[in-house]
Amino acid sequence: MDKPRIAVVLFNLGGPDRLDAVRPFLFNLFADPAIIRTPAILRIPLAYALSRRRARQAVPIYRQLGGGSPLLANTEAQARALEAALADRYDARCFVAMRYWHPMSDETAHAVKAFDPKRIILLPLYPQFSTTTTASSIRVWDLATRAAGVDVPTSTICCYPTEQGFIEASAKLVREAYDRASAHGRPRVLFSAHGLPRRVVRGGDPYQWQCERTTEALVARLGIPGLDWTNCYQSRVGPLEWIGPSTDQEIERAGRDGAPVVVVPITFVSEHSETLVEIEIEYRHLAQTHGVPWFERVPAVGAEPAFIQGLAALVGRTAETACGVCSERGGQLCPAGWRGCPQAA
Rank of each mutant, 00 (worst) to 15 (best):
G226H: 03
P161G: 04
L82C: 06
G67S: 08
T133L: 10
G204H: 03
I157E: 00
L314K: 04
R180Y: 10
K3H: 13
V277L: 10
L173S: 08
R297D: 00
G68I: 05
T162F: 05
L50W: 00
P206N: 09
D91K: 08
P161Q: 04
R188C: 05
T75S: 11
M104L: 14
F25Q: 02
V112L: 10
I6S: 03
N231V: 04
G149S: 07
C341E: 00
R329D: 15
V200N: 07
S246T: 14
Y178N: 03
K113A: 15
Q288E: 15
F191L: 02
R186S: 01
P16K: 07
R63Y: 13
L143W: 10
P4G: 05
A77E: 09
R53C: 12
R256E: 13
S273R: 05
L13T: 07
K113Y: 10
L222W: 03
E274H: 13
Q249P: 04
P161S: 03
G316S: 15
P124H: 04
T38E: 13
A55R: 07
L314A: 05
E271Y: 08
A92S: 06
L123S: 02
I224N: 00
A148M: 14
G331M: 11
R139V: 13
I157Y: 01
R256A: 13
C159Q: 06
